[in-house]
Computed example of a mutant assay.
Amino acid sequence: MPNSRRTRTSPIVGIVGTALIAVFLVACSAQVSDDKAGQSVAPSTPGVEFTSELDHLHGLHINADGTVLAGTHRGLFAIGDSGDTVRVGDSDDDLMGLAGTTGSDTLFSSGHPGPSSSAANPLGLRTSSDGGRTWTDSSLAGKVDFHSLATDGKTLVGFDGVSGVKVSMDQGMSWESGAAVGAASLALTDSGAWAVTSSGVQYSDDNARTFTDVPGAPSLVLIAGASDALWGVDQDGFAWRSREGKDWEKRANVGAVEALTAASYDRAYAATSQSLYALN
């Protein structure tokens, strides 16, 4: 469905629909008050099922009008209120990495060209200023496929699955080598960079050049950040939140999700190829 991006002006919470919000409020009221450090059993969180299954998610983003966008093996898709999924733009590229700051139409992506593309393989870093409808090459074309990617709007951190973390301080125009760690997932908050590594959650206050372990952090497989908030999903499918890596709270059970994005300390979204979960 080329060039069929849905335009909407609803707030972010409209994405999951009124009925689902009511379910979340019930789940939150049933939650045990002492939910820190895994001391309580978090409630299962129902999801909005997609009308058409997506092809393997690699990232989520909340754009300027509150729509949740999903990066997949076959391009970028917008997720509607009732779970409808609509292709954004013409690209069918395999978006292995997707990043943006919540509430912005500026996006960064990486991966491999799709069947209709003549772009370099791998794609390097690509940038969109219109919510993913069109993309331009920024850097590293033919050289890098970022499997993990995060941004705070200016700084970008990425991991290509091979050579450690790379860091850009100018929106991806130029890059420097960061720490030689394998980062399955990356996040940026006001205080620094965060990585899910084989040693657990790690933190950097020097633009991802060095990382140290985060004491007390859960065993996460996905992590996302916004402002001072961190959200994560652990190996057992539980969603957690924290302010700057402190006082982790277990919030919900979402199962084995493929992608995660944080809107704020009070809201995040996780997804599989079949469903979207709103977290609060």
Rank of each mutant, 00 (worst) to 15 (best):
N3Y: 02
R8C: 08
V13Y: 13
G14Y: 12
I15D: 11
L20Y: 05
V23M: 11
F24K: 12
L25I: 05
A27T: 05
A27S: 10
A27W: 05
C28F: 06
C28Q: 07
A30V: 11
S44K: 10
P46D: 13
G47A: 15
E49L: 09
S52Y: 01
E53T: 15
E53N: 13
L54Q: 05
D55E: 14
H56N: 11
H56F: 11
H56P: 14
H58V: 09
G59H: 03
G59A: 11
G59C: 08
G59D: 07
I62S: 11
T67F: 05
T67Q: 09
G71R: 04
G71Q: 07
H73R: 03
R74P: 00
L76M: 04
I79W: 06
I79L: 11
G83M: 12
D84Y: 03
V88D: 11
D93W: 14
L95H: 12
L98P: 10
G100T: 04
D105K: 04
S110A: 13
H112K: 07
A119N: 06
P122H: 01
P122D: 03
R126E: 12
T127A: 15
S129P: 10
T134V: 08
W135P: 05
T136M: 07
L140V: 06
G142W: 01
H147G: 03
H147R: 01
S148E: 07
G161L: 15
V162M: 13
V167F: 15
S174E: 13
W175M: 10
G178P: 03
G178M: 04
A179R: 04
A179W: 07
G182E: 06
G182P: 03
G182I: 00
A183S: 08
A183M: 02
A183R: 00
A187H: 00
A187Y: 00
L188S: 06
T189C: 11
S191Q: 10
W194R: 03
A195P: 08
T197M: 03
S198R: 14
Y203M: 10
D205W: 03
G216S: 05
V221M: 09
L222D: 01
A224R: 01
L230I: 10
A239D: 05
R243S: 15
G245E: 00
A262Q: 07
S264L: 12
Y265A: 09
A268W: 02
Y269K: 01
A270R: 00
A270T: 01
S275P: 05
N280M: 09
